[in-house]
Write a protein that binds this DNA or RNA. Structure first.
Lengths: 251, 251
DNA sequence: CGCGATTTGTGCACGAGTTCACAAGCGCTT
DNA sequence: AAGCGCTTGTGAACTCGTGCACAAATCGCG
């Protein structure tokens, strides 16, 4: 997904351990902790134990403690973590102290929804510009922004200091869009198109494929329903045999 | 994310290892292989080498071969894999031989887009029903389906043999919806709401949080910008491919 | 009919990530 | 001020996933 630097020439450690090469798995969980912490703060909690935060975030408490320890944690033994302090810590680590500008390319079905998704705004991001290749859509106002033509990408990206791009186009157009984004100075891409992007080193790509998620669930469904019929032993000759209409789930 | 059975009472191994307990990481990649294979098939390829398929899917060829070997692969040494056969194999493994019915709950901003997302239909799923708690939306036609009130969920799920549910509601409502889905016999849930769901054993939950993806990218952005004044040059270990206009990275 | 080119399947070593279990540290109580 | 209960931080074992490297197998060709 994202290529990261192999050797971490550890950044100078001053008073605060600035960027101590977090494990990728930890990074992926930090946003979840952050969300849980915001909830706790709103509920009036000043401190929280690792156990409490762990359940709120849906993880194991040992894992949480190790994760937090990686960023030079500020917990107090016998007490727990200061919620407000931890929020600041994590937001700093994730680079959310500044509100980051995002360019969204492709305002079709999905892109339209993303443009209006409140979750981005409330969690540190600002959709700074919308782009599409379809001239018919250019000018269309969405959520207070006018759709621009993709040819304007470079100019707008520079003007707005956009470093993150979101691709919500059909797969066929995605690679071209990615190239354009990179050329415009974007160094992080969130790709919703079902295809593999190739980008230069130094550019991070994360992919979200909605159908893939369902397919993974389908696998588990398939396994579950096959297990119910296991004792009898289904003799599947060559593996290609269709499973008929066994569903057998909830009745 | 998804709780799976700890002990795999391995199905009797007859001609084909029916469900030989695939590693979760492998399962997560199979859909990607499948997509790549469909592309290849459309391009008129009859066979493909592990190397070719691996690049098309954006992974390492050794990893791909190991993944395929787990499902009792049908490759031919010296030649490669038969594309059509492999498609059948993977679709069978993922349980996609039947078109699975999906219930979508929450037709707000995001849910509306998901309801119209063509990617679901084209990749093995059928959105069988739309639900919302807002009476004002009930009856609204979306993409050929009428929105129903959530109270009808159990009845419809039973009638349509729905085993997979998608939650696209605000976080505050998500747990209640999850409970309702489980009560209606749903055993797999795809959750777009930014919150942790608790479900009984045997129910699989996968979560997609769009803001989290951006926050992870933000972390890398943050790190990159802090590293600009770094001493050493950056070596690329394996790297994916570097195509198109490389530029704008380090500058 | 045998040989070489090619590609799969996999044993093995390595690295990343997870979990356990416990010592160290903190505050509250007495 | 000392003890006690609670919680963090972390060393160490372990599991899981990855990547290399090579033997086994197949096809095409001479």
């Amino acid at each position: 997904m994202s290529q990261h630097r192999p050797t971490g020439p550890n950044g100078r450690s001053g008073g605060v351990p600035a960027l101590p090469d977090l494990p990728e798995a930890t990074v992926a969980r930090l946003p979840e902790y952050l969300r849980a912490l915001h909830n706790l703060a709103e509920s009036g909690n000043d401190t929280v134990s690792s156990e409490g935060l762990a359940t709120a975030a849906g993880v194991n408490s040992a894992k949480l403690r190790k994760d937090l320890s990686h960023l030079g944690s500020y917990g107090t033994r016998g007490v727990g973590y200061d919620v407000a302090l931890l929020i600041d810590q994590i937001e700093f680590t994730l680079g959310l102290t500044q509100r980051r500008a995002v360019a969204l390319v492709g305002v079709g079905n999905l892109g339209h929804a993303l443009a209006g998704y409140a979750g981005f705004a409330s969690r540190g991001f600002r959709i700074a510009a919308l782009f599409d290749a379809d001239q018919n859509r250019v000018g269309e106002p969405i959520n207070g922004l006018n759709v621009r033509h993709i040819s304007e990408l470079a100019a707008v990206a520079a003007a707005e200091s956009i470093a993150i791009g979101v691709i919500a186009t059909p797969a066929a157009a995605a690679q071209d869009v990615a190239d354009a984004l990179v050329a415009a100075g974007v160094t992080s891409i969130l790709n919703f198109a079902p295809c593999v992007l190739s980008v230069p080193d130094g550019v991070d790509v994360r992919k979200v494929d909605l159908a893939v998620e369902l397919q993974i669930l389908s696998f588990h469904e398939h396994r579950k329903s096959s297990l119910t019929a296991l004792p009898g032993g289904l003799a599947s000759p060559n593996g290609l045999v269709a499973t008929g209409t066994e569903e057998a789930v909830g009745t």
